[in-house]
Design a binder for these strands. Structure first.
Lengths: 229, 229
DNA sequence: TCCTGATATATTGGATCCAATATGCCAGAT
DNA sequence: ATCTGGCATATTGGATCCAATATATCAGGA
């Protein structure tokens, strides 16, 4: 995939998730091509790609719409991630950890631990947590050693609300949000514990539950439930 | 998506799953375009689509290869289907059945029951079973009422070995194969029973196990284990 | 007033062309 | 003999053109 094609795809993804293109809006190749200053060709390819990812849907026989997602869709996207990452965790528990992967997990858990030791949060720390979290999930999926599972998870992550870094943080409630991240960190630790002990079913269950942390745990800490940014 | 584009995609899918294009083989747009008698354009679109589905993989910076799948990949494809259909079944159990869906399930189970009553199998019956089986799985996924889950399952089913009608039947061992289908039918019945009783976890577990019936149950009945056609 | 049908327009799909560049090949040098 | 560099070729990506057709608009009739 070439530079221009790639840029069109990422730019469209961005415009959709930032809301510059509203759900339900109709897209035409010409219009987007002009907006982005390219020919219709890369736009055509991008539309197909995004439609396959589920961000666009066909509008009758001509053109595409920006897909609208209900709150139920958001929950289902999370549950799919939970199910698939749970599968990866179970596989890892059943097949055992290599020393490298074990060390990498320890390192990630350590970093998370240190980040949260002083029990406070700020915008910078939220960013750092996001990186640590991404590393945890990537390591898990990679270590499971199945490209087929990794692909399935990657495809699901194309739904912006389903990916593991879609965790909603209210930057005005950082004391309460701290507790959410603390809980997420503990869940990471428990997952690794389960994997290390070869407890596949437990690792699976923990990952499924962990998928909810981003959008369903807010009420535990007196936070507003907001499914949208 | 237009006629020609569609035909190129389905024809390529067929050529791949029939083995006319061997795993690892390199494809060029021009070559396929000539073979199929179309211009490069629809081939270009098809390559992208199939790559996104996971049937092709990029070869360096130029061109695509037919992806090779290991036996482990096959098992993982099945486990993904199990996890996702299990999720659908759990949702259905938790949300309850409408009368229409309940009736449709009864009908499907009845048809399966009748097909297998005389305890014999022939090629025609295998075809009929395939139809009944497809209807069961489609009904389940539809009834779960989540387009996001349905899409995820549909995407996984693009892997030829992962779809629910990829069940391997040895047409020289029809007496033994009968028992496999009988067991699958019983599993269908148990899944519906669990759903009707609102037993989400049980429905989930049953669907996950059921996903294995196609390729891992052969040894129960003294059948050769063959992951490839 | 609302429906139906015909015409006009917009938009897409496929083919072709051209430029960019990855890849392979061959020759020359070490 | 093997490696390196440059050249030739193959192949892709993007743009443009043309045909097909879906969609919209408008007029006429029920």
């Amino acid at each position: 995939m070439s530079q221009v094609s790639m840029q069109v795809i990422t730019e469209l993804r961005r415009m959709i998730s930032q809301g510059e293109l509203a759900p339900g809006e109709r897209l035409t190749e010409t219009q987007i091509a002009q907006t982005l200053g390219v020919s219709r060709m890369p736009v055509r390819l991008a539309f197909r790609t995004l439609a396959q990812e589920g961000l666009l849907q066909q509008a009758g026989k001509r053109g595409f719409l920006i897909r609208e997602f209900s709150e139920d869709d958001v929950i289902c996207g999370l549950e799919i991630r939970g199910a698939l990452e749970g599968l990866a965790a179970r596989r890892l528990a059943e097949r055992g950890l290599t020393d490298e992967v074990r060390a990498e997990f320890r390192h990630i858990l350590q970093d998370g631990e240190e980040l949260l030791t002083d029990q406070t949060l700020n915008d910078r720390k939220v960013e750092q947590w996001s990186a640590i979290n991404a590393r945890f999930h990537n390591t898990l999926v990679e270590a499971a050693g199945s490209p087929v599972i990794a692909d399935a998870i990657a495809r699901n992550n194309h739904l912006p609300f389903a990916s593991s870094d879609s965790i909603m943080i209210d930057h005005n409630e950082l004391e309460r949000e701290f507790r959410k991240l603390q809980l997420a960190q503990w869940q990471h630790q428990l997952v690794v514990q389960a994997i290390e002990h070869g407890e596949g079913a437990r690792a699976d269950a923990l990952m499924r539950e962990h998928a909810y942390v981003g959008v369903r745990y807010g009420s535990l800490f007196g936070l507003q439930v907001r499914l949208r940014p």
